[in-house]
């Protein structure tokens, strides 16, 4: 499917809710405001035929104003075209509407994203940790936490260059 066609129809429908288009990579990328994310994906699914949600994941860019992001990958199976939709939110209010109303498959992936990045998907039916232990009290993929286990008692930092 022509990228220009997608761009024009999205521009026409959502106007200033769309932050940017990125044509430089192998997958056409749209960045939108988080208030319209469900509407945008519903439009892409129903009107543009991207009926398969390939992936949904979180991302954390500590240097930008809206640090936390969610990236959605959609696939148009008959035309074999893909599209990437991004949306960002601040650390202070990490809430984004759930996509489970559009794709049931988003349920698992949103739980995983919550588990690792602490992004709260509002109206998600069962937003609890899925992969990590229940008693974990932080979100390990956020950049402010070091990779190493902070509860270790047997390693002397001096010997590990820390």
């Amino acid at each position: 499917m022509e990228r220009l066609l997608i761009q024009n129809s999205l521009q026409e429908k959502f106007m200033d809710a769309i932050i940017s288009f990125d044509d430089s990579s192998d997958i056409f990328t749209v960045t939108v405001k988080k208030q319209v994310i469900v509407d945008v994906i519903l439009f892409i699914k129903e009107e543009l035929g991207f009926q398969f949600l390939t992936d949904l994941c979180g991302i954390h860019y500590p240097d930008q104003e809206f640090q936390l992001g969610v990236v959605y990958h959609l696939h148009n199976l008959p035309l074999n075209t893909r599209i990437r939709v991004k949306t960002f939110t601040s650390l202070a209010e990490p809430e984004i509407d759930t996509l489970t109303t559009v794709f049931s498959g988003a349920n698992w992936m949103e739980r995983e994203t919550y588990d690792f990045f602490g992004i709260i998907f509002t109206n998600h039916p069962n937003l609890i940790r899925i992969l990590n232990v229940e008693y974990l009290d932080y979100f390990p993929m956020r950049k402010e936490y070091p990779l190493e286990d902070q509860t270790r008692t047997d390693k002397d930092d001096r010997f590990f260059g820390r």
């Binding site: 992969l131 390990p140 270790r152």
Partner: peptide, 14 residues
């Protein structure tokens, strides 16, 4: 014995 190379949030350290 000690968690080995997996010095990370998800692995039991021994």
């Amino acid at each position: 014995s000690s968690g080995g190379i997996f010095d990370t949030y998800s692995v039991l350290q021994g």
